[in-house]
């Protein structure tokens, strides 16, 4: 009998890609919702950020799961891409991919790597300073030296630099292109395909792939344009 383990078969790996991608898409909804609050209420944003940043269930249980999903999704993506390249070592002299498939579906590795590069920038911007403050310096108060909460202030000042805003906006465009194929592809990979529901999922996918990155873009530009 053949080995049927999820990591051992081509379909199994695709299912794991879909599940980890699905988890990341769920995370994005949460991330964008919390960030969007920063445009309306710095106080609420501070309260939620402090909760997320100091709640041990989130920090010790959820954060590693998220990390694992990110690392798994990107490393499996690279592994699959390498296997796929090996499946055709002799390239076509002429290949008209646009005749039968979308650019997004053919360039998931390109948009994926762009999002990965952005993640590195993003980690240097937010996650590493956050870890240093909380765990290296042991400052779990979430307060600035002047006594106010630090989260909104930190977010706001990160977007004072127009180059940084530009990088973020560009990265969100790549994220949108990645999601444009990824959302509906995840459903197909786990076998969820139905004459009634698949057209709805495809429309939802387009909506999701536009709405989530666009909201992130609006947030970045909002903070850039409201600098004192």
């Amino acid at each position: 009998m053949s080995d049927t383990g999820l990591t051992k078969t081509s379909i199994g790996r695709k299912i794991l890609m879909a599940l980890s991608g699905g988890f990341l898409m769920f995370f994005l909804v949460m991330h964008v919702t919390i960030n969007a609050i920063s445009m309306f209420s710095p106080e609420t944003f501070n309260t939620i950020s402090h909760f997320m940043g100091t709640n041990m269930l989130i920090q010790i249980a959820m954060q590693p799961v998220l990390m694992l999903a990110v690392v798994f999704h990107l490393s499996m993506g690279v592994v699959l891409e390498m296997k796929n390249r090996k499946a055709r070592t002799n390239k076509y002299a002429m290949n008209n991919g646009a005749a039968n498939s979308s650019w997004m579906s053919r360039n998931m590795i390109v948009t994926g790597i762009m999002v990965l590069l952005f993640l590195l920038v993003h980690f240097v911007d937010f996650w590493i300073p956050e870890m240093v403050t909380k765990y290296a310096n042991g400052d779990m108060t979430g307060l600035l030296p002047d006594g106010g909460m630090r989260y909104w202030e930190e977010l706001h000042h990160k977007f004072a630099n127009p180059v940084k805003v530009g990088i973020y906006v560009l990265a969100f465009v790549f994220l949108g292109l990645h999601l444009m194929h990824g959302f509906q592809s995840a459903f197909q990979s786990v076998g969820f395909r139905h004459k009634k529901y698949t057209p709805v999922i495809e429309k939802l996918g387009v909506l999701y792939a536009i709405l989530i990155p666009l909201t992130f873009i609006v947030i970045a530009i909002f903070h850039f344009t409201t600098q004192q």
Binding site: S10, A87, N100, S105, S185
Partner: peptide
Amino acid sequence: KNMLHQMDVEGFGNCTNTGACEVE
């Protein structure tokens, strides 16, 4: 299980749901 295993052994790539196959 068996057909999938043989498909993988033969060195075919992984499906990424581009949908090009259905069109062509």
